[in-house]
């Protein structure tokens, strides 16, 4: 039994028939070939598959594709416009927040969720927010710095906008 779904991924509409058991991450990777979202575990623990569903961070391995029907999805591929980097992407590069890169897309998507709610997080806020994302390479030190970098940059942009408006 297949189920018809409609999703909007990174601004593009898709209609597909999917098996109900297809996980959202498998749909993104196998059907849409958006392979930036990774699978690192089978217990919903590691966070490598984190994306945004309707603007909120979700583990796409713990959601069925059919559950995403009608949803707006953003993956790492859609985080920036393709030319300019998102401040988090820039932060991870500037602060050496990644090594092998496998956890990075999920890490960035989770951090993006944090910065939506808390534009000025402290170190412990960042560490707590990332508890659902494992990184085996960096020891998290530079990931924390990357998120701090992005937060500062985004705040500066906001400030700038305000000043321009004023």
């Amino acid at each position: 039994m297949s189920v018809r779904i409609h999703v909007r991924v990174n601004g593009v509409d898709y209609h597909h028939d999917v098996e109900p058991r297809t996980l959202l991450v498998q749909y993104l990777r196998d059907t849409l070939r958006l392979t930036g979202t990774h699978i690192g575990c089978d217990t919903s623990s590691c966070g490598a598959c984190t994306i945004h569903v309707n603007g909120k961070a979700a583990k796409s391995c713990t959601m069925l594709a059919v559950q995403a029907d009608g949803c707006e999805i953003t993956t790492i591929e859609g985080l920036s416009n393709g030319i300019e980097l998102h401040p988090l992407q820039e932060g991870f590069r500037e602060c050496h927040g990644l090594q092998c890169g496998f956890c990075t897309p999920g890490m960035i998507m989770t951090a993006a969720d944090l910065l939506q709610h808390n534009p000025n997080p402290g170190e412990s806020d960042i560490r707590h927010a990332l508890e659902g994302n494992f990184c085996r390479c960096t020891g998290y030190h530079n990931i924390v710095k990357s998120v701090q970098y992005a937060a500062e940059k985004m705040q500066a942009v906001q400030q700038n906008k305000k000043e321009v408006a004023a």
């Binding site: 958006l34 392979t35 980097l85 590069r93 050496h96 990644l98 890169g101 897309p105």
Partner: peptide
């Protein structure tokens, strides 16, 4: 020096074995 490989990883353009079909 900032890493040259990062661009592909932070934009989801890495090419890991499971990405290959």
């Amino acid at each position: 020096v900032k890493r040259v490989e990062d661009k592909r990883f932070i934009t989801g353009k890495g090419n890991y074995t499971d990405d290959i079909v």
